[in-house]
């Protein structure tokens, strides 16, 4: 237990979390601080490229085995199942209607790539290795949750959502997935030699760029809390904190069944615990336009993301360490 508190304190006082807190505090204090839209986009492109590339290099370095395929399947399965769990938990904890509950549930089956990036940064700080292919697992977990959410809606009276071929293409080929998987492939093909060529660009500045990006995320989360707080009840907020813990247990089980390393298990927990605020909201606006975006965005970005970043990540790491020895 002492280790968990020490790790949590260390995480809380890291530049990454403090940058996020600065953004959050600035937004809540109604400061006009903002990161220009194009700069924020450039920062996210850098982070996705770096994390994908490093994951590919790690796979090239350690080789491919059956666990890669099994981890991908586990990720897809978790992404499909977690919305069903989230939906039931929402029904118990809140008075949310079926349509909004299904839309929220879809977000909790999918993943937050920024939480994943922050978790890999914590692992690096702890000197813990992880399976490089977890980047590919992250990409595979983006979409199945959307189908589960639409299935949940189709079982109610309000009818089903619309998931046409165009939306499929937009989800599967959204910029984040293409960049993440593409950089992963480049890293896999070029291996450690390729990494050595661009190391000064994608390794050393990584944490600094992540700090700036999380400053922006803090601003967004704070402004989301201000504008969306009226849309959430106490039960919904409780869900936003409980669901990541429940999801992380599913991730822990999957990681242990797959025989992943401590770092890999922790990343699987983070993926299962995090909620999407980029790919799924866009899909929901097309497929379920009647669902209230203030509800699902405030929950995933304003409640679950800060919880995971500040408390969840050290907790998941401690749990993974305890479980994998």
């Amino acid at each position: 237990m002492t280790d968990i508190f020490a790790l949590a304190a260390q995480n809380l006082l890291s530049p990454i979390v403090l940058s996020f807190v600065l953004g959050l505090a600035a937004a809540l204090a109604r400061s006009d601080l903002s990161i220009p839209e194009a700069a924020a986009k450039a920062l996210s492109i850098y982070l996705l490229f770096a994390i994908g590339f490093k994951g590919g290099v790690s796979v090239a370095d350690h080789g491919v085995d059956l666990s890669l395929g099994l981890s991908l399947l586990a990720g897809i399965g978790l992404s499909a199942i977690l919305p069903l769990v989230a939906f039931q938990l929402l029904m118990v904890l809140s008075k949310m209607d079926r349509l909004n509950a299904a839309a929220v549930a879809g977000h909790y089956g999918s993943i937050s790539i920024v939480t994943f990036v922050a978790a890999t940064s914590v692992l690096e700080g702890q000197g813990l290795p992880s399976e490089g292919y977890m980047v590919a697992v992250a990409a595979a977990m983006e979409a199945p949750a959307i189908l589960s959410a639409l299935w949940l809606v189709s079982r109610g009276d309000s009818g089903g959502g619309r998931m046409d071929a165009k939306l499929w293409r937009e989800v599967m080929l959204n910029g984040s997935i293409v960049l993440l998987v593409g950089a992963f492939m480049i890293g896999w093909i070029t291996g450690p030699k390729g990494l050595a060529e661009i190391e000064s660009f994608i390794v050393s500045p990584f944490k600094g760029v992540l700090c700036l990006f999380l400053l922006d995320m803090g601003l967004l989360a704070g402004r989301g809390m201000q504008s969306g707080r009226k849309a959430l009840g106490l039960g919904s907020v409780a869900f936003g904190i409980l669901m990541p813990l429940v999801g992380s247990l599913f991730g822990l089980g999957a990681g242990m069944l797959l025989g992943l390393s401590t770092g890999g298990t922790m990343l699987m927990m983070v993926l299962s615990a995090s909620a999407s605020y980029i790919a799924v909201p866009a899909a929901m606006r097309v497929a379920l336009p009647e669902a209230n975006p203030s509800v699902y965005l405030t929950l995933s970005l304003g409640v679950t993301f800060p919880f995971n970043l500040v408390l969840g990540i050290p907790l998941y790491l401690a749990m993974a360490q305890a479980a994998t020895g």
């Binding site: 903002s34 220009p36 839209e37 959204n174 995320m217 601003l219 967004l220 402004r223 989301g224 504008s227 969306g228 605020y277 980029i278 909201p281 866009a282 899909a283 929901m284 606006r285 097309v286 209230n292 975006p293 203030s294 965005l297 970005l301």
Partner: peptide, 15 residues
């Protein structure tokens, strides 16, 4: 009807 929003505060393409 869906509340205030501004382009500078967008994290999601959906907003």
């Amino acid at each position: 009807r869906s509340g205030d929003w501004s382009r500078s505060g967008q994290v999601s393409r959906g907003q």
